Amino acid sequence: MIKARVTVTLKNGVLDPQGKAIEHALDGLGFAGVGSVRQGKVFDIEIDNADRAKAEADLKAMCDRLLANTVIENYTVAID
């Protein structure tokens, strides 16, 4: 069993209205000094495979085909 965490974030230069809304909300709650907020998504995935290289290749394929919009998003894969 291989456990992995995939983190998907917007590429630099892509507008992030949700991050901007969070930034303003934090300021309204009294958290001064927050310069910028960018939001993203995290996927914790378990794969029934003992081959780490195959699991990593499969995870990248999952990101390219479904989990991330690679036109506007970057992703990282971390395997435990």
Rank of each mutant, 00 (worst) to 15 (best):
N12M: 01
K20Q: 07
L10I: 12
V14M: 14
I45T: 00
E46Q: 14
V14H: 13
D58I: 07
L29V: 12
V8F: 02
P17V: 12
V6W: 04
A4T: 12
L67W: 10
I72D: 08
I45L: 06
A78H: 08
L66P: 09
Q18I: 10
G13W: 15
G28T: 06
L10A: 06
I79L: 11
V34Q: 07
I72S: 07
T70A: 03
K41N: 02
K3W: 01
A68R: 11
V71E: 07
G33W: 12
I47H: 04
L15N: 07
D80T: 14
T9V: 10
L67A: 07
A32E: 15
A32I: 14
K54Y: 01
V34Y: 10
A78I: 09
D27G: 00
A4C: 08
A4G: 09
E23D: 09
I72E: 12
D27P: 00
G33T: 13
A50S: 03
S36N: 15
G19P: 15
A68L: 05
E56N: 04
A4F: 11
E23C: 08
K20T: 05
G30H: 13
L15R: 08
N12P: 01
K60R: 09
I47L: 07
V42K: 02
V42G: 00
D80V: 13
L26K: 12
D16F: 09
F31G: 09
V34P: 08
A57M: 03
L26N: 08
D58N: 11
R65H: 05
F31L: 13
K41M: 00
A68H: 10
K11V: 08
A53E: 11
V14C: 11
K41S: 03
T9G: 07
A68Y: 05
T9M: 12
G35Q: 14
V71P: 11
I47V: 14
D80Q: 15
K20S: 00
A32D: 15
V37E: 05
E56K: 01
I22K: 13
